[in-house]
């Protein structure tokens, strides 16, 4: 089991490559998974595991501090619209964003962070903020 996967070691090349084992913080404590793909979301990088779970980079042990991120201006209109279409599609398909580490949860987290960063820059504060 997992005999061909290599553990992503601290100080090694970052981000880990496909097939490497990563350790990440999960609801059940530290968990391991095998990286299938590393991809950029609207704000941060997500690690897609071979079992379908999606782990944000900042939950992976030994990630760079502070984590790398994208500026809202770097996200193209096409990219944002594609993300919005996927989110609406997943919502209409009856998926629940509260299923942690699943694609809907991961994408909605990023979309809310992106939306906040994009429109907050004008100085609008959320309810309850000073």
């Amino acid at each position: 089991m997992r005999s061909t996967a290599k553990q992503a070691a601290a100080g090694a090349k970052w981000p880990p490559e496909e097939g490497q084992i990563i350790t990440f913080r999960s609801l059940n404590g530290l968990t391991e998974g095998i990286v299938k793909e590393v991809r950029w979301g609207l704000v941060w990088r997500d690690f897609v595991l071979d079992d379908g779970r999606v782990i944000p980079e900042h939950k992976v042990v030994d990630h760079p501090e502070p984590p790398v991120w994208r500026k809202a201006e770097e996200v193209t209109q096409e990219e944002r619209e594609a993300c919005e279409a996927r989110l609406v599609s997943m919502a209409e398909a009856g998926l629940d964003p509260r299923d942690q580490e699943q694609p809907f949860w991961a994408e909605l987290n990023q979309y809310l962070a992106y939306t906040y960063l994009k429109y907050k820059r004008a100085g609008v504060k959320p309810p309850g903020a000073e």
């Binding site: 939950k59 987290n109 809310l112 962070a113 959320p126």
Partner: peptide, 15 residues
């Protein structure tokens, strides 16, 4: 940016 997102509770949203 991470502080802003963290303060807004948007980095790791509880279900």
């Amino acid at each position: 940016v991470w502080r802003v997102l963290s303060e807004a509770g948007l980095i790791d949203i509880p279900p």
